[in-house]
Design a protein around this nucleic acid. Sequence first.
DNA 1: TTAGATAGGAACCAAAAGGTAACCAACGGA
DNA 2: TCCGTTGGTTACCTTTTGGTTCCTATCTAA
Lengths: 109, 109
Amino acid sequence: MIQKKELPPCPVATIIGLIGNKWKLFIIRDLLTGSKRFGELRKGIPEISQKVLTQNLRAMEEDGIITRKVYPEVPPRVEYELSDLGDTLRPIFDLMRVWGRNYQKLVKE
Amino acid sequence: MIQKKELPPCPVATIIGLIGNKWKLFIIRDLLTGSKRFGELRKGIPEISQKVLTQNLRAMEEDGIITRKVYPEVPPRVEYELSDLGDTLRPIFDLMRVWGRNYQKLVKE
DNA sequence: TTAGATAGGAACCAAAAGGTAACCAACGGA
DNA sequence: TCCGTTGGTTACCTTTTGGTTCCTATCTAA
């Protein structure tokens, strides 16, 4: 799963390297509510293109954060799911959700 | 401080819009240990260029996450600090730090 | 007198990220 | 027989992001 690659010594830099871009954050947000098909993820993140979604899913799979299950059907079905490791990001997203809600409230005065 | 601008309805999308890029995450990481001068931030984030650091600091100031204090000295001194709002991101970074350390441990087996 | 320190701004260029369109496989249904 | 469906890949092009260099101001110290 997890590749043995050069990790920065700083743990915060490590997590930034893994999920420090908006597309991956959006993908995780959507997978926190359960496994999703490729097309469902596209619908959940309308601004993402197919290419970029594929790229990020591949990278996250390599990093051990998500799993990919292909069902040999026609038309093909592919399900993406948070791995056990990926699911441990949940508390972080819970806090982010709370923080985001608070910010929205502040902006609305 | 905080500008009244178009926020996405999803709170996670909101926080991603504010700090969902690696530079801002690095900046916050460094400011969590106290206020920093411009040059100190550059040293703490060696891969960032002056231009990009300036751009991100300006954006974060506009969003109310950091404050900027200019001391009318020669040579000039400018201190950046997390605002009260910015400091409420601390628990998120605490969790990220823990998560990053755990990931490092996993990779090292 | 001139270099050095600090925190930028502006202009220009290079690199990375992202978008678009075309193509694929293989089956079911009209 | 041909279309639609799904989840891609690839090539090519555009947009965004980031890097580099040069410039500024003002005081201190050599």
